[in-house]
Amino acid sequence: MSSASLAEVAAPVVRLKTRSIVFDVFGSYIRYKGGAVAIGDMASILSWFGVTEDATRVTMSRMRREGWFTSRRHGRNSYYELSDRAWTLLQQGRRRIFDRNRDAWRGEWHILLLKHDANTAVERERTRRELAWRGYVPLAASTWIGARDETDGLRETLVEGVHLQGFAARTPFSQDDREFAAQHWDLGELVDDYRSFLRRYESLATEATLATLSDEEVLVRRTVITHEYRMFPFRDPDLPSDLLPNDWPGYEAHGLFLHIVEALKDRSWAAFDRVCDRPTPASNRTDASLTVA
């Protein structure tokens, strides 16, 4: 594939950063093969996205230094393997993306009080993104609120030096809850973006469209839509239906996403397996509970 391939298979064009492609490929494929990949195989897959081999090696090396991977040699090949931190991120991320919450709401808001030790700006931003990913919104610099209690997962992933205290609160009337949600989350913009997502991808999984694509192009398309959809949980708090506008399009968008990912799965895996068919060295991490996405 040429460097223009991504533009050819994604409409409108979604420009992915190399590290985003790496996370998506590990999350959608490599994690189900033991979590390790030869650097040469990774470079081959990323070439379908127009990424050069040098850029792949630089990105993988940088992500290893950041703690996302470990690396080792096996014979003549160098392998990159998911770290424990990366395994946790991918497993929690998969639940947030694929298993949107449909539980009945108990009518309780969950309020978090945060105390920071001497964190850097980078660590504070990481904390902010983690809280937003889990459906919280700030009321003040160290006070966040969400519709569900996510403290157990937060304690696993927040940087060292961030201390949490949580408690539940109720409003007197259910209408107050819906108004509160509309004031603190930009649900109107999400409605527009979900509808745009539906318009762009509603015809992607048709047989007529797929017949024009190679297996490699199918994998690229599947990666692009996965990347685009996984951006929604950073903005969509996954509120209970009691708090959402009528005719909320997020449910339909999630259903379409799941349908397309499933429709493109077999041919995407065929492309992946043709490249990553060599046996990987025994992994230090196995997870029999994983279901292939």
Rank of each mutant, 00 (worst) to 15 (best):
Met1Tyr: 07
Ala10Tyr: 00
Ser20Glu: 13
Phe26Thr: 11
Ser28Ile: 10
Gly34Ile: 05
Gly34Ser: 07
Ile39Trp: 13
Gly50Val: 03
Gly50Gln: 09
Thr52Ile: 07
Thr52Asp: 11
Glu53Arg: 11
Val58Ile: 15
Arg65Phe: 10
Thr70Phe: 14
Ser71Gln: 11
Gly75Cys: 05
Ser78Trp: 06
Tyr79Met: 09
Tyr80Met: 08
Glu81His: 13
Ser83Tyr: 07
Arg85Ser: 07
Ala86Ser: 13
Trp87Met: 07
Leu89Arg: 11
Arg94Ser: 14
Arg95Trp: 05
Arg96Phe: 03
Arg106Lys: 14
His116Ala: 10
His116Tyr: 15
Glu125Phe: 00
Glu125Leu: 02
Arg128Asp: 07
Ala132Phe: 12
Arg148Glu: 03
Gly153Thr: 05
Leu154Pro: 02
Leu154Lys: 00
Gly161Trp: 03
Arg178Asn: 06
Arg178Tyr: 10
Glu189Pro: 01
Leu190Ala: 00
Leu190Val: 04
Tyr194Ser: 07
Tyr194Cys: 05
Phe197Arg: 00
Leu198Ile: 04
Ala211Gly: 09
Asp215Ser: 14
Arg222Glu: 14
Val224Ile: 15
Glu228Pro: 05
Met231Val: 10
Asn246Val: 12
Trp248Gly: 11
Gly250Ile: 06
His254Lys: 09
Phe257Asn: 10
Ile260His: 10
Asp266Met: 09
Trp269Arg: 14
Asp277Ile: 09
Ala282Cys: 05
Asp287Ile: 00
Ser289Asp: 01
